[in-house]
Nucleic acid binder design. Structure first.
Length: 479
DNA sequence: TGAAATGTTGGGGCG
DNA sequence: ACGCCCCAACATTTC
């Protein structure tokens, strides 16, 4: 009698290395059957946005290739997860389904419901870690509650031993039976009419192999300068691992261990590695917050902000989305996002401050736009970070920290590399006026071929007035 | 992982 | 030589 296969249910863990759920399935010694279910209804309004769908397509294709190379079929199905997995398990005679724990509220509900459904026929779902460094129920404060402040969380995290990454299984037993699989192309995850993904193709290579290469390149070339250069959007000082992490093409445990290995060898030193790991910890912190406060993506963590007098200004929202606010550093960021599906972190903070403070638009409006346009759109990081900037979040920046887009631009893009790249109509302005074209004289503007309000927008709000309006709005909910 | 307003200090121009 | 003012530079506070 042939052994029963184990089904590995893939979600945001599209890799073979450091995949405890896959490892467990392989070690059961029977054949492995890998499955991905595109369940459009399960996530409700949080179904993946356009940029994420593009990435998902390619990431699934790459994972399918890797599995095929090991002789393992990759079954693609679209529809209701419970029906698909439970009937598949019955069809192939699988007793066990394994998967990585996920933390979106709907994902957790799905895990519970699937486990129950499988249980009705004597089967079970086994859940493994893999997406995070630590289980959110395990890393708690001394009083047993979740951390709500980053610094003590970071200290506790750094002091807790990390899980050792597990290697990719060297070979698989192939499931020999015939299992129907859908065609990835038919899922229409890629944009057509128009195909707007040209910028994404130029900027990114999805997949586990590319993720590993990206990490190695970052560790070889940039990590020691990370503390200084990570804030300069005109340079490649960041790791750009975020979309790979988002889809689980690489795990935080792999990153953590790779950095520690470099530190031990002496290849990495100084503040860079420490600051980089703390960014991985911010991701972790966001996930733990989401786990303990599932309303984080929709409601302000600090309750007072539920009464904040947000504006309803569709024209200003549209100007922000399209990179036409008249503030060059803001517009450069929004255009980088639109073109590449990604934005430098420093600029994310600037554009988010501008939306929530200069325009007084609700952070949820920015969150929704990022969800649709970012290739790294991640429920936990996106929600926590928007709330952080807005001032409504856990351990958030104080509301009165209002970025001055001119100062931020001059400080972090001093030679204008970034703005000139993404706002080319300003490229011929001198550095001194590049971040504040409205203060340039008529002759300087003319010499640079800039006509404000025609070739480039005049500022849609006055900084000083907007700042005062924001502080006044904050006063209405303070205390 | 702010910015602006306000306060303080000290060098230099000037009567 | 001296006091006065200006203001850049820096520090503190406030939002």
């Amino acid at each position: 009698m042939s052994q029963a296969p184990v089904i590995v249910w893939f979600r945001n863990d599209l890799r073979l290395a450091d995949h405890p759920a896959l490892r467990a399935a392989v070690e059961a010694d029977g054949p492995v059957l890998a499955v991905y279910v595109l369940d459009e209804a399960a996530a409700g309004t949080w179904r993946p946005g356009g940029a994420s769908r593009w990435w998902l397509h390619h990431s699934l294709a790459r994972l399918g290739d890797s599995l095929a190379a090991k002789g393992c079929p990759f079954v693609l199905r679209r529809g209701d997860t419970l029906d698909i997995i439970s009937s598949l398990a019955a069809d192939v005679g699988a007793e066990t389904v394994t998967g990585s724990r996920a933390f979106e509220p709907w994902s957790r509900q799905l895990e519970e419901a699937l486990n129950q459904r499988l249980g009705e026929s004597g089967r079970r779902l086994r859940r493994f870690s893999g997406t995070l460094l630590h289980d959110p129920d395990q890393l708690l404060t001394k009083s047993g509650g979740p951390y709500k402040v980053f610094t003590p969380f970071w200290r506790a995290l750094a002091a807790t031993p990390q899980r050792e990454p597990v290697k990719a299984p060297p070979h698989f037993k192939t499931f020999e039976g015939a299992v129907e699989s859908e065609n990835l192309e038919d899922w229409e995850l890629l944009p057509r009419n128009p195909d707007w993904a040209g910028g994404l193709r130029e900027a990114w290579t999805p997949g586990e192999e590319a993720a590993r290469a990206r990490l190695e390149a970052f560790l070889d070339e940039a990590i020691n300068d990370y503390a200084d250069k990570r804030n300069l959007p005109g340079q490649t000082g960041t790791s750009r691992l975020s979309p790979h992490l988002r889809f689980g093409e690489i795990s935080p445990a792999q990153i953590w261990q790779a950095v520690q290995a470099r530190l031990a060898r002496g290849d990495a030193r100084g503040k860079g590695a420490d600051v980089f790991l703390s960014e991985i910890a911010w991701r972790e912190f966001s996930y733990h917050l989401l786990h303990h406060f599932p309303s984080l993506p929709v409601a302000s963590f600090r309750e007072a902000f539920e009464k904040f007098p947000w504006q309803d200004a569709p024209d200003e929202l549209a100007a922000w989305q399209r990179g036409r606010t008249g503030y060059p550093i803001v517009d450069a960021g929004m255009r980088e996002l639109w073109h590449t599906g990604w934005m430098h972190n420093r600029v994310r903070m600037i554009v988010a401050s501008f939306l929530t403070k200069h325009l007084l638009l609700p952070w949820q409006a920015g969150e929704a736009w990022f969800w649709d346009t970012l290739v790294d759109a991640d429920l936990a990081s996106n929600a926590a970070s928007w709330q952080w900037v807005a001032g409504s979040g856990a351990d958030a920046a104080p509301y009165f920290r209002i970025f001055n887009p001119v100062i931020q631009g001059e400080k972090f893009d001093p030679d204008g590399t970034y703005v000139r790249k993404w706002v080319p109509e300003l490229a011929n302005l001198p550095n001194a006026k590049l971040h504040q074209p409205w203060t340039a004289s008529a002759s300087v503007l003319k010499g640079a071929g800039v006509e404000l309000g025609v070739t480039y927008p005049a500022p849609i709000v006055d900084h000083k007035q907007a700042r005062e309006r924001a502080l006044a709005a904050y006063k209405t909910i303070k205390g």
